[in-house]
Amino acid sequence: MYSVNYHRASSVADAARLLKNGDAKLLSGGMTLIPAMKTRLAAPSDLVDVSRLKDLQGIKVSGKTVTIGAATTHYDVSTDEKLKKACPALAHMASLIGDPAVRYKGTIGGSIANNDPAADYPAALLALGATIVTNKREIAADKFFKGLFDTALKDSEIVTAVSFTAPAKAAYQKFRNPASRYAIVGVFVTKGKDGVRAAVTGAGEDGVFRSKEIEAALAKNFDVAALGGLKVPAKGLMSDIHASADYRANLIAVMAKRAVAAANA
């Protein structure tokens, strides 16, 4: 790791101010940033720690509206009783991230701000049609995730929360990379008042994306049977030593079917 200056922010405003230092980066759970710094792939001059800010923590469920503070850990998301009732699919998804020690530290805000192409939360938020709340504005998930490790966030903009309306049905299915345990393919499907949404992580060359094919097939009939003839194109999917684009295309279809079955169960 290169030398770095650590700051513990006292508030979101303080964090925004500290972020203006050099090439500063926000530190939340650190589950992606610190490994990247250890291998010297990331070299921020300053770290602004927001993980202890109480304002950024916690899960609120009000009717169908769910709001999750950006510094809420995967563990807390996966075990929150209110959330498990309102949107069990998201709690389940959080329980599949990394490993138990990672879930204790990693946060929803950190995950989406990093937008790793194999991370789980981007698929969930995209499929949930969530709103990403920052210290400056609100951004629809559809506009937030821009590409590999790229988001709509501007300099010194800080994710403070995400919120969404709990869908009637939802589920996440993930096929893990055997080595890294990240998603080779993860598919999050939802059926809500605005229709069906299906988002795919782990597979796209440009990161998380909504699958037109799955959404179209499920629009009329939210049932596994509707996905019987589903063909997902391999074009635009990643190929690496773990999985070819063809294999990923196949897994998208398989995970979509399993997700729909789970959502209907």
Binding site: Y6, G30, I34, P35, D49, Y75, A101, V102, Y104, K105
Partner: peptide
């Protein structure tokens, strides 16, 4: 009280 990876946390953190 939580099991975490001490290689993925700064001492100052």
């Amino acid at each position: 009280g939580r099991a975490v990876k001490s290689c993925t946390m700064l001492a100052v953190q």
